[in-house]
Structure formats: C-alpha cells, structure tokens
Design a protein around this nucleic acid. Sequence first.
RNA 1: CGGGGUGUAGUGUAACGGUAACAUGCUUGACUUGGGAUCAAGUGACUCCGGGUUCGAAUCCCGGCGCCCCGACCA
Length: 433
Amino acid sequence: MRQTNLFSKTRKDAPKDEVAKNAQLLIRAGYIQKELAGVYSFLPLGLKVLNNIVSIIREEMLALGANEVSLTALQDKSIWEKTDRWSDKSMDVWFKSELKNGTEIGLAATHEEPLTRIMKDHVRSYRDLPRSVFQFQTKFRNETRAKSGIMRGREFLMKDLYSFSADEKSHQEFYDRVAESYKRIFEKVGLGSKTFMTRASGGSFAKFSHEFQTITDAGEDAIYTHADAPFAINEEIFNEPEAFEGLTLEKKDFEAQNAIEVGNIFSLGTRFSEALGLTFLDSQGKPQPAVMGSYGIGPGRVMGTIVELLSDEKGIVWPESVAPFKIHLIEIAGSPDTHEKTVALYNMLTALKIETLYDDRDMRPGEKFADADLIGIPFRVVMSDKTIAGGGVEVKKRNEESAVIISEKELLAKFPSSNPVSNSADTDHSFNS
RNA sequence: CGGGGUGUAGUGUAACGGUAACAUGCUUGACUUGGGAUCAAGUGACUCCGGGUUCGAAUCCCGGCGCCCCGACCA
C-alpha cells in the first residue's frame, strides 16, 4: 500500500485522556480511534493486525476440528432465564434493550446459551459427539470501569470456542488439546516467552480453570510462577491448598508477577446442557447431558498486550506474524532515477505478495523515519541516491540498531514468496506514477 | 458502584474574576532532503452542556454529561 493512500495519520502527542501505553501508541500511530471509554474503532492498520491475529487463532481452531460459526449479538432473554443468567444479579455486565413491542433483549456478553440451544437441534446421539464450535464475535459487556486502553473494553472482539462431549474423559482430552493449541497461538503471536498457563478458580462450574496470563506491568491480575512448575497459579487461589494439588513444589518458592489474562479455558460440566436440555442417547439408549467446555481469547487484548510488551521509546515493535506489513519501504527524495527504482521495487514486492507499506509521501527523511519507528513494521527498507550508489537498498529491522546495504536480489531472497512471480504481464497491477 | 481528579483550536498546553495565548498540525510560498529542519504569510475555539453569582466568568457556585486514576467487580 502506498502511504499517500492511507487515510490515517500519525501524531506526536498522545491524547491526554489515554494513560495506557497500548492506547497511546496505537492511537498515535493511527491503528485505533477511541469512540467512548472502553470502545475503540479499528483503523486500516489496526484492522490488519487484528485480522492477522484472528487468522493465527482460526488456523489453530480449525486444526482442532472445530466448526466456525457466527452467532447473533441480539439475545433472547428466555434461554438466559433457563440458566439463571438473565438477572443483573447473576450477570452484571448485561447491556439490555427492548424491541418496539416491549420485548426485552440483551446484547451478548458470551454465547453458551444460544449455542447450546442450537446444538440441541443437531446432537441426538453419542455418535454425534464430540463436537466443537467457535466464532469470532463482538462481545458487549457493561463493565463498571473500562480501563487500560483496548485491554478492557465494553465492546470487543472475542474468539469463543465451545466443546460438547459425551463424558468427562472425552471432555478432558479435548480440554488438554485446547491448552496445547493455546500455547502454540501465544507462541505464534510473539507472546510465548512471557505467557503462562495458569491454574485459576473454576468459578461455579469446576474446581479449576486455566488462564493464559502474559507477564506485563500493565496486567490487572497477579499470578505466582515457579521455574519448575508446569503452570502458574492465580493469586485468587494461591492461598488454597488445592491450588498445589499434584505439585511437589513449595508454595514459598513461587514468585508473584503482574499479568494480563489473554486467554482462558473452562470446564462447564453439564450446567448448561442440563438447564437447556442438550441431551443425547448413549449406547444404552439412555439420555445423557453433554459435557461442555468454553475457551476464549480476545484478539484485541492480544494486540494490546503485544504493544505493552514489545514497544520501545520510539514506538511499536510488531512481531512479523501479526505486523500490518512486512516491509516499510521508505523513499528518500533524490534523483528521478531513484524514484523510478523505488516504484519498481514496490511493484515487485507487491507482485510477490510481500506486504509492503511504501512511504511515497513528500516529506523529509527524519519525519519518515520517526513514523516508521512509531508504526513498527518489522523491516525498514530505505531507497535513496546513497543506497543505490552503494549497490541497492538499506535494510534495518525494527528491533535492531544496525542497518546494512544489500542488493535488491538479496532483499527478495529474505522473503520467500508463496506466489512466485510469473512471466506474464499481470504482475504489475499497482498504479504507476 | 464508592473515592479522587479533570474538561480551553485537529492535537498538546497557557491565561489574577477584566473579554482567550503558545506550540504543533493544516494551507500557500521560499529554501531544503539520512532522524519530526529553517524563513515568511495564512488557517483554525459559542473555553463540554444548562443554570446561578457578578458591572464583567475559561476562571467562582449548583446541576448534568464526558473522560482519567485508585478500589470493588470481572461469565
């Protein structure tokens, strides 16, 4: 994409109403825009990052064998009454409204109830199980206090996965597979080294649940970690002896850390299947309630966590896997020949499907560099009279200090393309100048 | 939901109760082109909303709304 075709602008100052680092940088760099407290729009760059995170998660969900769906935001009160989750006393984050005829409806904060009802129509026999279903859907939660930029909003995208199994054993097998899947996801998005599977309270559904907590000062939670423990322990259960069940380690050797919950996995038992009547016939022909689990990840929160964790004083530093572009191609004004060569390189990169943001703006170099650092694309490629005289382009990684001049051929070799350029004439589909 | 703070050009900040200023951005021109340059001329605000006090309110008072922080809460 040519930067002159990108509507979002960067700014030097962070808005005064944002304190959280993730919001300050994402707004300054033009990734997001605040609409209300805890409500953010995603601008072109932000949407690209969000979509990259979504793609990584989707790939793993599909690998689990889960089916993707899209359920509604508008909710039928009657099914929530069956599970006793309609009342504001039992679930205080509801946004409620009503139809013109007075019928009450809610905006979904989660989707156990509607999905369980859907599954009733499709699961009849133990032969229909296990099943797993996921979606990326906007959740609405009337938080008493939104905070920390995009980390805790009132409206946010969530990947929610639900599982339906015939028995506890089958459920546990799936649950464990999801845990492994989550580890891979957080590894892929660049949070792996700081993210811990964490034993946490099981809520009203099970003894324990597991959260995936990323160590960061911006975290809202406190967890206890130990180098030899297979999982961390959430502060909320740290004083309960059962929290150490199965561990031979001593409580005093655990260390407290601030962390942000980027994902969670819950065993739900038969609470929802019983309340809503999701039963199947077992091999003896007897009706049994399905055993359920739910598993969430907030892509927006993941995005904010990456910014919190990986940015520096100059701006954001995206991991390649989620970055909005692979290359930030910067042209420094010079001879007409330099301009032509830069356009040609941009067209080549585009044809090779190497995502490139081409800074073709008429600006001084300093400003372009400052913007590039703020936006945080992994590879900065500069083309100027100087680099051409030196034999090619200058390449600098966002997270490294040193820059080197290499030939264009060497540059392209760094980015193996899945779509090798053909000899046909259709490779140049960008606008020429 | 308790407590604290705050609201002024697009953005960031100023202004004793005396009639809104500076920076930045943006526009035009000049000069520049490897780290947010320089110069010149422009542009841009019913000071969040509604009341009140006062000769006079951005400033003081009351109410509302928004936003931020701490705590509680967080299926």
